[in-house]
């Protein structure tokens, strides 16, 4: 057997393991548990003179220490891990992207289900092989899948005037969506299917129609729009229902009825009563 006395014992290693790994230089990285504390004396030791034979007198204050480094300090903590994605991961990136994430998250949610591989030098050299062309890729960006799932739950109230003539155009929907907190940077990406909707027409108040958005010229999202007829004079204005965006209205075009029924809608919350104070904008703020 190897002599055990030469080996410094560290942390949680048992005597048995230390005897087996005798020639290995022990560093904190080999330990299976992070338990290294670095300490410093709070006060200096009493001075020892060159010819002094006696051990200096040590009182209790010599055994007080300050902690310099703990296992949970910033320097000792596990650093974020770099991985290469093999597939599209929602909210993270496309295939072939190099991302840095929390090591525990990477291990459980990316490396074990084989959505990603370690960013070793060999893998990094081959990272470009995983990349797909724009046509092959299912989604245009890392967040577009989330958008497709969540956007249809929102209703866009479109304010249209009672006194002036209008036909609904894409910019009307762009401006109304912006008020609810949905930014559409490209006006050409909005489509309104069906025959043009014209006004002023009081009977259209509260009716629904569909607008189609194209995200990054790739994914199409159908959204419910609700017409709100707005009189310029406050006395003539239509009253506002509590949480009106949670109710399905009649379709403007009867052909769209099936599509509108399939669209999801935000759930009505009976505890949260929002009584609008005469203005539409307060209700819209709550909706966003």
């Amino acid at each position: 057997m190897f002599p055990t006395s030469r080996i410094p014992l560290m942390g949680g290693l048992s005597k048995m393991s230390s005897s087996l790994m005798a020639n290995v230089v022990h560093t904190p990285s080999i330990l299976n548990s992070r338990s290294t504390y670095i300490l410093e004396r709070a006060r200096p030791l009493p001075r020892i003179y060159p010819r002094q034979r006696k051990r200096p007198y040590m009182n209790r204050s010599t055994y007080v220490y300050k902690v310099v480094q703990q296992p949970y300090d910033r320097l000792m903590r596990q650093q974020d891990l770099q991985v290469i994605l093999v597939q599209y991961v929602e909210g993270l990136g496309k295939a072939g992207d190099i991302v840095t994430v929390n090591p525990n998250y990477a291990y459980n949610n990316l490396l074990l289900p084989k959505l990603a591989i370690y960013a070793s030098p060999e893998n990094l050299a081959n990272a470009s092989l995983y990349k797909k062309s724009a046509e092959e890729e299912a989604y245009s960006s890392k967040t577009s899948k989330t958008l497709m799932r969540l956007l249809p739950y929102h209703t866009i109230p479109v304010v249209l005037n009672q006194d002036n003539e209008w036909t609904i155009e894409p910019w009307h929907i762009k401006a109304s969506a912006r008020k609810v907190g949905i930014h559409v940077l490209n006006e050409a990406s909005i489509q309104i299917p069906g025959p043009p909707i014209r006004g002023p027409d009081q009977s259209l108040h509260g009716k629904d129609f569909i607008a189609i958005f194209k995200v990054n010229n790739k994914e199409t999202i159908k959204m419910r729009c609700k017409i709100f007829i707005w009189a310029t004079k406050p006395a003539e204005r239509n009253s506002i229902e509590n949480q009106f965006w949670c109710f399905k209205g009649e379709p403007v075009h009867p052909e769209e009825k099936d599509d509108l029924d399939l669209l999801p809608i935000e759930q009505f919350n009976p505890d949260k009563i929002i009584i609008p104070s005469g203005d539409l904008e307060n209700t819209i703020v709550c909706a966003s």
């Binding site: 960006s141 967040t143 949905i182 930014h183 958005f213």
Partner: peptide, 10 residues
């Protein structure tokens, strides 16, 4: 900041 041309402000 967002990468897409349609996004939710929140």
């Amino acid at each position: 900041f967002s990468e897409d041309d349609i996004y939710m402000q929140k």
